[in-house]
């Protein structure tokens, strides 16, 4: 499927600001599942753009505006061709016990930790074991965990913030895709399944059916031995399909934040974000 993504962020500053430094993680990943046909980051005022790759191989675009300015527009447009593997095609017989090997725990250490917003509290750990019950296959277990998150939590924007932890969210399970993803990460990691945070975009052909499509979206990937990383969207309770475009990977939200910046200035700041994903 060919998807076109337009992601626009506009800042208006009541008073001129300066030394505005921004880091963007908005470049679609290039992997077996998705191929980038076009990707442009356009910033106004016009700036010199720079790029590097971070630890997670995310493409980071960064720029700075030293002179005083009152507005900043970041326009990201991408065209990506996606494909997807159906859930049934995954190795259903990979076992949890396959993960309990030192080479796995060592190489995926960052994706097994309890850290930052992903807190594996005793309660979450207990829940993970309960949901697992006596299932031994990874695919079946993560599907069960995803179903659990989707059934337990309600999608309510505006209740949580970027710093909400799984502990807080689990106590009052109302939040957005990022909270859903963090909770699923914690549940998977509690059982020793390597799980990472994905930031990206999702296409909603019928407009209004897919949660998270009006802004950047977040979901998880778990690692299955003998296969690789598999995407799961707990917010919409489904495996990743060709409607998804990933743009950043990390342990949690902090590693994959789409736009992060700082500037010198006082006064109010107004921000407007629009995301459009359309099939081409």
């Amino acid at each position: 499927m060919k998807l076109r993504i337009l992601h626009r962020t506009e800042y208006r500053y009541a008073l001129p600001v300066r030394n505005n430094n921004n880091e963007l993680r908005v470049t679609p990943l290039d992997n077996a599942r998705q191929r980038t046909i076009l990707h442009l980051v356009r910033v106004l005022p016009a700036v010199k753009m720079r790029r590097y790759q971070d630890l997670y191989r995310n493409t980071v675009s960064f720029f700075e505006i030293d002179e005083a300015h009152k507005s900043l527009v970041i326009d990201v447009s991408s065209v990506v061709e996606t494909s997807a593997t159906p859930f049934e095609a995954l190795p259903q017989d990979a076992l949890l016990s396959d993960l309990a090997k030192p080479e796995v725990t060592e190489s995926f250490q960052p994706y097994l930790q309890s850290d930052g917003p992903v807190q594996i509290t005793p309660q979450i750990w207990r829940t993970a074991i309960d949901v697992k019950a006596d299932r031994k296959e990874i695919v079946a277990v993560v599907k069960g965990l995803m179903d659990f998150v989707h059934e337990t939590c309600r999608y309510v924007p505006g209740v949580t913030s970027v710093s909400t932890t799984t502990e807080e969210f689990f106590a009052k399970p109302q939040g957005v895709c990022q909270d859903f993803a963090h909770l699923l990460l914690a549940l998977c990691r509690a059982l020793g399944i390597p799980a990472r945070y994905i930031c990206g975009y999702v296409y909603d052909p019928k407009r209004g059916e897919v949660l998270g499509s009006h802004a950047s979206h977040a979901w998880c990937e778990v690692w299955i031995p003998g296969y690789g990383w598999v995407g799961l969207d707990p917010t919409n309770r489904r495996p990743i399909n060709e409607a998804y475009v990933a743009s950043a990977i990390g342990r949690d939200y902090r590693d994959a934040t789409p736009i992060r910046g700082s500037y010198w200035g006082t006064g109010d700041r107004e921000m407007r974000v629009t995301v459009h994903v359309e099939a081409k």
């Binding site: 442009l40 356009r42 106004l44 005022p45 016009a46 700036v47 010199k48 002179e67």
Partner: peptide, 16 residues
């Protein structure tokens, strides 16, 4: 895209 950014730049800060 580059040409329009260039024109904006040329008629504003002229960073390039």
């Amino acid at each position: 895209t580059a040409l329009n950014l260039f024109l904006y730049d040329v008629y504003h800060e002229q960073r390039i």
